[in-house]
């Protein structure tokens, strides 16, 4: 079925529990965690585990597909056996459902797809998780003050990266399938769903318009890429001063994807593990010779902005920022990327 012919459905909120229960018979459902737990996701084994009326989780959804710590392979240092089961299977049927992902986070997954899947060699660890997971996103009715998705090409109702998108129409959900796999899965719970009427579509349009109006459109991005081509501009000399050089912005960012690989061996057990790394750390680019091409925070800040807003658009035709606002909310010194960009745009 082509996209034009897909129909939207309605799910009454009082049937939501049944919907979840019915899906959980075949798939494992996860939802981003809104409380500070050791895990970033909670397994939804009962429908009341899903929380609504939340704006967005603290930690981004990227860790579902690109976990902070991931075993690439394990080995026995004595027998020299190596096991990387990840690469063994190629067929990945849907096993997991990620529910309640905000459109900005879903959009970020489509950006990470470009990095991990579209470029050769593709990342089998990412692919396995990605292909076996369906993303159900939930459009935003109440964006926060720190949201700026509309400035970076995303919307509170963006469908990119999601398989299904839910719209909260107060007493019911409007469900829009985005991909083919979504259609199949929705067909399995078809009896719980009604068809969306024009009235429903109107309500959704109105809610989304209100939502978009809440978000300040701070800047237009078209000129930014060109502006940032000036690698030696003088504004780089002032922007970085407040930055402490911690990794909060990069670790919480849905699109940041730098990583480090290390081997750990204890007695005879060993593993090669991939962990998140951050370009903001001072030793990120330290060479074995002792030379560091990004010796001060100035170069590191420049690299971060350039990577997101200049190199990525050139490499992937996308800005690697979805406007979720986490870096703004959690930065210890309130370094606001919107202010930064505005400052850059205003410079000669």
């Amino acid at each position: 079925m082509t996209k034009d012919k897909r129909t939207d459905f309605i799910l009454e909120k009082n049937r939501f529990e049944e919907f979840i229960r019915s899906l959980s018979e075949k798939y494992r459902i996860y939802s981003p965690s809104y409380t500070d737990t050791r895990g970033h996701f909670i397994e939804v084994d009962s429908p009341d585990k899903i929380k609504f009326n939340q704006t967005n989780s603290k930690l981004a959804v990227k860790s579902f597909f690109f976990p902070q710590v991931e075993n690439l392979f394990v080995f026995d240092a004595e027998t020299k056996e190596l096991s990387d089961k990840e690469n063994e299977t190629t067929a990945h049927p849907i096993q997991h459902i990620l529910f309640g992902v905000r459109p900005c986070d879903a959009f970020s997954i489509s950006l990470l797809d470009a990095v991990f899947m579209k470029i050769s060699p593709a990342d089998p660890y990412y692919i396995k998780k990605r292909h076996s997971t369906m993303i159900i996103s939930l459009a935003c009715n109440h964006p926060r003050q720190t949201c700026f998705c509309t400035s970076v090409g995303c919307q509170p109702d963006s469908e990119k990266g999601a398989d299904i998108i839910f719209f909260d129409l107060e007493d019911r959900f409007l469900i829009r399938p985005v991909t083919d796999t979504a259609e199949e899965i929705l067909n399995s719970v078809r009896t719980l769903l009604g068809s969306a009427t024009d009235c429903d579509q109107e309500k959704k349009k109105q809610l989304m318009l209100e939502s978009k109006n809440i978000i300040h459109k701070d800047f237009e991005f078209d000129d930014l890429v060109k502006k940032l081509d000036n690698f030696n501009a003088s504004y780089w000399n002032r922007i970085y001063e407040k930055c402490l050089g911690c990794g909060i912005c990069t670790y919480l960012c849905p699109t940041c994807h730098c990583f480090d690989i290390a081997d750990e061996v204890i007695e005879s057990n060993g593993r090669r593990v991939r962990t998140w790394d951050s370009c903001m750390f001072s030793l990120f680019t330290l060479h074995a010779s002792g030379h560091n091409p990004r010796p001060t925070q100035k170069e590191r800040m420049r690299q971060r902005i350039m990577h997101k807003f200049n190199y990525a658009p050139k490499n992937y035709d996308q800005i690697f920022c979805v406007g979720c606002g986490r870096c703004i909310m959690y930065c210890p010194v309130n370094l606001d990327i919107r202010q930064l960009i505005k400052g850059i745009m205003e410079e000669e």
Binding site: L59, C246, I248, S278, F281
Partner: peptide
């Protein structure tokens, strides 16, 4: 401490942590 995500914000915000190479790295 189990909630920690190793962002090193505590270390970088602390005026006493000025080591050029931290033991953790």
């Amino acid at each position: 401490v189990g909630r920690c995500i190793r962002c090193y914000a505590c270390r970088n915000a602390c005026p006493n942590c000025y080591c050029k190479e931290c033991f953790a790295e």
